[in-house]
Amino acid sequence: MQFGRVSFTGGFIVMIALVYLFDVNNFVPLVVLAALVHEGGHFAAIWALGGRTLRLHLGFVGLRIDYEGRRVGYPGEIVIALMGPAANLALAYAASFLGRYLGSETLFFLAGISLGAAVFNLLPVYQLDGGRALYCFMALAMDVDWAWRVSCVLSCAMIFAMLAAGLLLFIWSGWNFTLLTVAIWLLISYCKSEGSAIRYAVNEY
């Protein structure tokens, strides 16, 4: 469904419903704030580098910005990708210091969430900012196809490591499924958006 430049899928609504239902710690508003700042960082970078935002897509596997950026180049891509986590990091520090000043536990909580968002998005998985920046960096340093292969291998290794860790946690802790859920979510995200790319890599080489 599309409203102007923003589109979203049913999966996104399901995601919202699930999170809302189980949100005991009332962290959803803070997560939304951290996400807005994160995307704000990307938007600012796109704008500053002369790109043009075409569309914002909200899906089950997260949020995607489509932009027209032929003039941006790989270094620009790296900057755009990293500006999201950077904005989160800035928010985390700001919230933490403000929290200390005001004596507010909620602000510390926001700082922790924002820092977590930054770290998570810097994971070397292609769907996340870290993996995308890494791919662009490798594309600059070596052949693009090699960069792509390394990127695929890294993403899969990371996802499977998380799946394994999540499974271990699930068994050891007596059904703690948090990490496993995150890993499965990443796997779905990887398969959905990169299915063709995996085929491409397999067929060509």
Binding site: A95, S96, R100, E105, F108, A111, G112, L115, S173
Partner: peptide, 20 residues
């Protein structure tokens, strides 16, 4: 299953607190 013994909020808050 996920909350008992795992005080997510306290953990996340503790991380946030260290930044400043």
């Amino acid at each position: 299953m996920i909350e008992e013994d795992m005080d997510y909020r306290s953990a996340v808050t503790a991380i946030g607190e260290t930044l400043s």
